[in-house]
Design a protein around this nucleic acid. Sequence first.
DNA 1: CCGATACTTCGTCAACTAACGAAGTGTATC
DNA 2: GATACACTTCGTTAGTTGACGAAGTATCGG
Lengths: 121, 121
Amino acid sequence: MKQMLSLTKALADETRLRTLMLLSSGELCLCQLIDVLELSPSTISKHMSILYDAGLIHRRKEGRWHYYRLAEQDTTPAAREALRWVISHLEDDPALHRDAKKLCCTRKKDPQELTACYSGK
Amino acid sequence: MKQMLSLTKALADETRLRTLMLLSSGELCLCQLIDVLELSPSTISKHMSILYDAGLIHRRKEGRWHYYRLAEQDTTPAAREALRWVISHLEDDPALHRDAKKLCCTRKKDPQELTACYSGK
DNA sequence: CCGATACTTCGTCAACTAACGAAGTGTATC
DNA sequence: GATACACTTCGTTAGTTGACGAAGTATCGG
């Protein structure tokens, strides 16, 4: 019950659903998510820890960068099924096309440009 | 996106998950849910409307009684899959055995006894 | 080892949510 | 048609959540 509640609560937020859809296209680091979602680093970091605690995403540290991807074999069946459910019903969502498009631009940017969001543009 | 959020938000509450599991054993009226969940009529009624708006349950009126059951053909694929997901991962949950047991007693009671919860025991 | 970078944690505040009782709605029963 | 019953809706309140900036942690470059 506790595990299911942490899963459903993790999924019950628009920003977190957007994040999962962004991650469905592959691994991303926090600064890339900041760039696409246009929210403060602390806010997104908090969202990531909620998704992580629920077992929905995997985190990997490489130097200063923290990379996130959707959880796969390394989590519970409940979380894997939740991911499949969410993604299959959101992948054609028109409201998320903007995010997907923005992500394309973000992927092309230099790390230089991305870190600009910290130094107040 | 909006539909998915209403689904995930509907599932992100312990009382509503308990309710869905109770309904997985068959149709129930509000007074039976009140008896098992031990919450006020207005609170449970509100929960039911949230589950209904999300497309997770079906409501049927018969005289004064309002009967609820899990949605089936009469809802979206997303809601049907959500129900299957939740139920499959909660059906063996030890924390919910109490509810299931209590429901057995409730089903055996007279309507008389159930309405007692309104008239202040 | 000093500053810069890429986060995370903490404290605060506004917005949302679940609980309740009181009042309202619709349906049987007398 | 008055009363009782089975809810639903409304207004209030306490607790939760999401947003932010400020401060803290860990890593890298000079």
